[in-house]
Design a protein around this nucleic acid. Structure first.
Lengths: 140, 140
DNA sequence: GTACAATATGCGCGCATTCGTATATCCGGT
DNA sequence: ACCGGATATACGAATGCGCGCATATTGTAC
């Protein structure tokens, strides 16, 4: 019961909903694209992504200096249903299309086909040193 | 977008989820039954019911000294979907059946068939004097 | 090595949320 | 009118949460 409430708390934030909306519509995005499209601070973006990651909603993949985030396949039925409803609802929102367009524009401008600006010479897969839980705040 | 987050915030609370679970399974309940079944303080129960009411999730009906609360038919598609998922999930919770049993036991013990203990001699429908939004805290 | 870019996080502030206690309000019975 | 029960709400304390700023960390290029 507690955990369901906790899970809903993660969803109950405008910034996180916006991030999810972007990820619903793009296989994979790096932090800089998200922060630019949503006009968020870098720290704000990173922190909310961390929250989503701790909740198991997204996963990150490191490549060179970048972190690419993507949705994580849902584990439970509820999760799947909730996200489906949310996605539909987010799509109904007037601003929804606009951010997607802005995102498209950015990525087109930067040219990297799905990849971030400067494609690194070689891909170095660095496993997460440690997915430590944050020291303060959200206990998970 | 903001409003969706706001709506989710209302759902993202253990006490409110528990109350909703009871209301999912009973047409109408009065405050004292809810607080007893969930072992909550009176003020806590009343407060959370007020929050649910302000969010449009429940309605109250006054009869004599009692307030009977019931679910309010959903207005939007999202709302319907979300609540449906939540209800299913709440049902999966181990404690779910237990509170319902406790509630049943109470109501049986008190005998009033669905009504609260002392059935008033006559039903006096008293319209809400005023559904004022709370002065502090929740800005809506 | 240094310098620079992308990302994560510690710190502190301010606001929001929750709670218990005490009080107010409303109603029915006497 | 007064009392007692049911409910709502003000108040103060504790905690949680989101933010910006500065800094740490990691990786690339030189």
């Amino acid at each position: 019961m507690k955990d369901l409430a906790q899970f809903l708390k993660v969803l109950a934030d405008e910034a996180r909903l916006e991030i999810l909306w972007l990820l619903f519509n793009h296989e994979e995005l790096c932090v800089c694209d998200i922060m630019e499209a949503l006009e968020m601070t870098q720290s704000k973006t990173s922190r909310h992504l961390a929250t989503l990651r701790h909740a198991g909603l997204v996963v990150d993949r490191k490549e060179a200096a970048w972190s690419y985030y993507s949705l994580r396949p849902c584990e439970s039925e509820v999760e799947r249903n909730l996200l489906k409803s949310l996605r539909a609802e987010l799509g109904r929102h007037p601003g929804a299309a606009r951010v997607l367009q802005r995102l498209q524009a950015q990525m087109a401008r930067k040219g990297g086909n799905g990849r971030c600006v400067v494609t690194p010479t070689r891909a170095i897969v660095r496993p997460r040193t440690h997915d430590r839980t944050p020291l303060r705040g959200t206990t998970r």
